[in-house]
Design a protein around this nucleic acid. Structure first.
Lengths: 199, 199, 199, 199
DNA sequence: AATGAATGAGTGTTCATTCAT
DNA sequence: TATGAATGAACACTCATTCAT
């Protein structure tokens, strides 16, 4: 009597997601080289072999994690935000609030940002800017908001891209703090926004 | 004419420094776990064994690197700066200028900052705040300047420590960019100072 | 109407035989170490677990295969053949004809011979000639025929055992060809018999 | 003071050959899947890691062994033999004598033949007859001698290729016996030649 | 002192076996 | 009973460290 095919796929999907989710945090905290499969498996609470039922290799697992570690949902909101007829300042506030709140409540969100930004840094080293698409979209939309702000006179002068990069850099910074430090003073939304907002 | 003992020590010292210097960059870029002794030796241009003539282990080499990777000189200037009778704004400008210039011209300086900050992050994880002394001194002095600025009405409100941490965080951020990316837009001194300075 | 116990045993027996038969070929082609249970199960068309319903272990399955992989029927015929009052040449012809025909039509027969001979070779390595009984009987009977042939002057001189071993060795050789090669030139009965028959 | 480059290459070449030679016998006796790197290293008398200094993987080591396991020297002799103006019978006798003597005195020769023939068998399975060149040359030359013998009336009728294959098959058979059994009755040169020679 | 070949403890990966369904 | 997901012992492979030269 074979197990129902449907149920089997379900179980597999579930385990795969568990591994991905728990591995994401672990890799974000320990890095690729610093992560041992044996420790990772113990941390997830499964046998070492189980990881290899779902992923070809440590490398593939890591790549899959990077794939799912995009903040697509946040991106979508941002996209809509850009075309909303409100001041850039208000747009930025909404974005900042969302991001800071997510950062505070969800360690996974911090891990996603950390992994993504690290990936971007490493990619630049090889000059292979192939996969950077969605990430730079994030930056592009932020840059647009900043440029609108500059026209409205509420945001500081300078390249929109540079400032967007700076803004997200600070978010990366506090993602690291979230991941690595137990007690730390989180900056306020105002602090974050001062990267791009005038006085 | 046998080489004098003096000369011998000199040669040893020279090689030791070469290894330390070249390793610092390598470790900063690849992390401790991501650095293989074989690769490191190739990168330095020496045999693997040579490293073990000067250092007990990979761990000891790394610790020695961390030891010399303090910005003592910068710290001394900062210490003097604090007690100089000028406005906080001017003090901050001097500090920012020095740091940004050093960052631009010297990759090693970026490596030092990166290694130190990463060490701090990792240390916090273990809650063993033993070795953090000189680093937090850095922060302490910066915090003092900021607090002076707040009294003078030129700097934003909020915990001095938090703001100092923010300020140095941004410097860490651009140290990473310096180390990992070939082409990037460096923020201006004004951008950096906006972390703590009012309008 | 519940299935009778009889029918149940029948079904079990059937499955067990399917596994044994299909495994025999697989083991003969890939060897013990070269056979993975996962591949074997896929090849048979059952789940991995099913194998363990019928056999304790990979090792036991292999031993069971070796047990059934004797050419008992051929042996019985050979036994009768030896005591039949006809010339050795005719006896050999009958044996050779049967063997070559079986080899041609039935890959399983080739697998049986291959497994048995390999087992003999491996056993000799350990000098544990315990289980060789029925196999050496095969050789013994063949040797007797050869010795008869030598008396009749139709077969070549030399140790009967050695020649019997040679004769069956050639059969092993063409069992391997049968198992491993798709297109090959099969030797004729005359070719086979030339191992022991004069001019 | 670096080791002399010359001496270094020498040492490397030496070790590489030791590994290849000792591994050849081990692989011939245990097969690819049946050979554990740990056991192999112990058998050679070196550390496991040393094998990986000289070879990328177990697979590559095995392929390198197959590459050097050709009986090129024997082949060269055979090539000359074919064009020598003597009877095919005498040619065959020389070849047989050489091969049987080598087989008797040198286990490595047996290993070479075993590995080569097994490789041929496996290759046929994939129908990729790319690398078979030198091996089939061996067969080709033997076939030529047999065909000469058929013209001279000393050798049995039938396809030269088939008979050459048969002849070398028997040699493979006794290579296996040499490798696997401690006590066995070696066939005589006459026995071997009877595969192809008349009465 | 400097080297790089050799090593084995440690890490990544496989696979026979178990077990809940 | 039959299954295939889960497992960990065993195996392949790596890399920090040693040591003869």
């Amino acid at each position: 009597m074979p197990k129902s095919k449907e149920r089997c796929r379900e179980i597999r999907e579930e385990m795969r997601n568990t591994i991905l989710k728990k591995s994401m945090l672990y890799f974000a905290k320990n890095g690729f080289a610093g992560t041992k499969i044996s420790d990772l498996a113990k941390h997830i609470g499964i046998g070492q072999g189980t990881i290899y039922v779902y992923f070809e290799s440590k490398e593939e697992l890591f790549q899959e994690i990077l794939k799912i570690a995009d903040y697509t949902k946040e991106l979508k909101q941002l996209k809509i935000l850009v075309h909303t007829p409100i001041t850039a300042k208000k747009k930025l506030r909404r974005l900042s609030k969302t991001v800071m709140e997510r950062l505070q409540e969800d360690e996974m969100f911090a891990a996603m940002i950390a992994l993504n930004t690290q990936m971007l840094l490493e990619q630049d080293k090889d000059c292979s800017s192939s996969d950077t698409a969605y990430q730079s979209e994030m930056y592009k939309y932020t840059a647009k908001i900043i440029e609108q702000g500059q026209k409205e006179g509420t945001m500081v002068e300078g390249s929109g891209t540079k400032l967007a990069d700076y803004y997200w850099g600070v978010i990366y910074l506090y993602s690291l703090k979230r991941l690595f430090t137990t007690e730390y003073e989180m900056i306020s939304i105002e602090d974050l926004e001062r990267t791009v907002i005038k006085g």
